[in-house]
């Protein structure tokens, strides 16, 4: 069993989910309440990774991170090394890749919150941030958990983007899905199977827990007025 690949994958997924919570929540909040006429434009950009082949996304992320791009050069001058083929680069690419899976369930949950509750909060003198933290977020726990789990599972299983941006460096960018590919390339089907079963079992358990939790979330608040 390739434990370093497993731990690396879990670490990557956790880091990506943490970043997505911080970055994705405001985007989801903004998307569910803005009346800006060009909102669809932002929605399309966020949703792009769903339809785009991971290799295309990975290719452009690689270019954007490269030493020829301003972003790449800026990062290099800051840290002394480039982004491609590092854990940080992989994490950034994965954040972009999993963004829609975090944002969409959260935005759906936010916009399902009764507008009257948000209005009532404002009338009672609450700021927008307080309204969000005290009313919208607690009533959207289901959506936030779903977004977290979906992006976690999605990051666990990604392959194309990792290969393009991270390569295959053991302990740095060699995730489980890359390891499985390696095993198959080496005709080690038993090794591939061990890791594949692990990934599948883990994904299944995570999803089951999410759905079970989500159901209980609804049961706590039977009344939605």
């Amino acid at each position: 069993m390739d434990w370093s690949a497993i731990f690396l994958t879990i670490r990557l997924a956790l880091v990506v989910c943490a970043i997505l919570l911080v970055v994705g929540t405001p985007i989801a909040w903004w998307l569910s309440f803005t009346r800006w006429r060009w909102k669809f434009f932002v929605e399309s950009i966020v949703a792009l990774p769903i339809v785009l082949p991971p290799t295309v996304l990975g290719f452009y992320v690689l270019i954007a991170m490269g030493s020829n791009s301003p972003i790449g050069r800026w990062y290099q001058s800051l840290t002394g090394h480039g982004l491609p083929f590092t854990f940080e680069g992989l994490a950034i690419a994965s954040v972009i890749y999993s963004l829609p899976f975090a944002v969409q369930p959260m935005a759906a949950a936010f916009s399902n919150v009764d507008r009257n509750l948000i209005n009532a909060s404002s009338i009672l003198g609450a700021s927008r941030i307080r309204t969000f933290l005290r009313v919208v977020l607690p009533l959207s726990v289901g959506g936030v958990v779903t977004g977290f789990v979906l992006s976690f599972a999605h990051t666990l299983g990604e392959f194309g983007v990792v290969l393009m941006v991270g390569g295959n460096i053991p302990g740095v960018t060699r995730t489980v899905s890359i390891a499985i590919y390696d095993h198959v390339q080496a005709l080690d089907y038993a090794g591939a199977n061990r890791m594949a079963i692990l990934l599948m079992a883990f994904s299944f358990v995570t999803l089951s827990i999410t759905y079970a939790l989500n159901r209980r979330v609804w049961a706590v608040w039977p009344m939605h007025r």
């Binding site: 009764d114 009532a120 608040w221 009344m223 007025r225």
Partner: peptide, 9 residues
């Protein structure tokens, strides 16, 4: 409001 809008949680 007519529907009161009490915070359910």
């Amino acid at each position: 409001f007519q529907n009161l809008a009490l915070f359910p949680h």
